[in-house]
Design a protein around this nucleic acid. Sequence first.
RNA 1: GCGCCUGUAGCUCAAUUGGAUAGAGCACUUGCCUACGGAGCAAGUUGUUGCAGGUUCAAUUCCUGCCAGGCGCACCA
Length: 549
Amino acid sequence: MKEKISASLLRLIVESLSDVPEATGALVGLKEELYLELPKDSRFGDLATNIALRLAKPLKRSPPELAQDLAEKIKIRLQKSNLGLYVKEVKAAGGFVNFSLREEYFYKHLLGVVRNGKGALRMDFGCGRKVLLEFVSANPTGPLSVAHARQAAVGDALARVLFFLGFKVRKEYYLNDEGNQIDILGRSVELRLRELEGKEVDFPDDHYQGDYIYEIARTIKDKGRRVGDFKLYAVGHILKVIREELRDFGVHFDCWYSQKSLRKSGRIKKTLHLLERRGLLYRQEGALWFKSTQFGDDKDRVVVKSDGSYTYLAPDIAYHREKYRRGFMWLINLWGPDHHGYINRLKAAVQALGEKADSLSVIIVQLATIFRAGQQVLMSTRRGQYITMREVLDEVGRDAARFFFVMRRTDSHLDFDLEIAKKKNSDNPVYYVQYAHARICSILANSPAGRSAKEADFSLLKEAEELALIRKLWELSYVLEVCLKTADPYMLTVYLQELAETFHKFYDRHRVLGQGKELTSARLALISATRTVIATGLDLLGISAPEKM
RNA sequence: GCGCCUGUAGCUCAAUUGGAUAGAGCACUUGCCUACGGAGCAAGUUGUUGCAGGUUCAAUUCCUGCCAGGCGCACCA
């Protein structure tokens, strides 16, 4: 893993400002926000910085003039540095400082991918920091829904991206295996069982209505009711279904953390004692309250009800304390939109435990609306009539489902059309990307065995489409950096579509095979690197890269 | 009533978290198959960023008010 050229350039820019005393102070405040970005338009070069715009005010300078000055200073320093070998041009434009890189730089990057494959694409942002990603965590009271499917797709992709960027990632499913909802589940099964036995029952509205309750009841009936505790049996049954669904979706959890075991370990009690010692609990109207307002919540929250039982918050505080205790420095929770009111509460809890508020990132995964040929498929959880993750998976397949669920920003609504996801043409972005991969594999299979691609002469790649493709391959690291900054893998789906498009354009205009030994060899290396990048990107989304379709 | 989120092209969505002329896909129109996979490629059209103010070198982005839609407001989880 090498340092990115943008990081080296950034250091050089900061050095260029060292003789401006006011700048140093101003830079300190901006430290986290300084970075080189891919410019909006290719005519602005390959990398750009808005540092002059940011510094114009504190330095009391006009932005274009400051950018111009800065560009000059950078040029001088570049000449003395070996970075100069790779920078073609430094130009100020409207307050931005733009950098153009030489072809040699891109050829070098290409060579790295050809030689080291996937390894050349990895970067170390995480430095081995431990991250705990908690997602899905659906109550084991029914099959997983479409909402959980999206959380699973996003969470798993994010985990893969963070791992690729050098973080130590663990994926965890918090299991609410006791409490109110589980009690209701047990009663629901029992009532359905009596119904099956021909008795008259009154089935309450707030009980679980789905057909799967009948199925569980039926298996209990078949076993002559000899299954032990109905509640436990039902949870076990549903949990098995959930695990199978996730497995078929390609999502594996490192740990299933049971709330029941948390309580039995006494950690909830211990955590409450800790809060009490810190003077953050008080008794009122028979209940025990947590002073969450002290940490920015809008009202205090009950942790122990007047009947002596815990609210959901109590085990959750203990659970998060447990996460820190296990050495995780960054906790990421993916929640459904109905939980957003809960964010402040948990952030308050985290601070009460003595941790920083921003060590916990809560990502709200918006709901997906399922369409079939433009017609919305209505869902109602209460009636138990809803599209399950299983149905989507069975209908469109794992690859399409995973791509579609990540295709939009995680915090925005998503329309998922089952018909489009099943199509096998360019309407369907998954197939468009996978097709590019299969096409490359097909060319490589037809290529004659010859000299190694590693010795190819890349300087023969001079056509606009070739250079565009080489540059696009290089962009991956910047896309992954954005994924990290936004804690959202969706940008990767956009990038893969662009990469596939860039490849298809190249393919349409230039032949790879039969172009003479040297050129063919260089182009084979180029498409082989393209294949590596597409396969890597798809893998980060948990999607297969087929050689034939 | 209080709080949070959303409002961008006919449709679905972007805009690197305050930056350059607001961009893609779909749809629509017209072209390209004697070549490595046409499951592909090329060209063309689309905007008062819900409305009205404000903050500044710069606002789709931040602030205030209104309009419309969604969600939340438990000693449920």
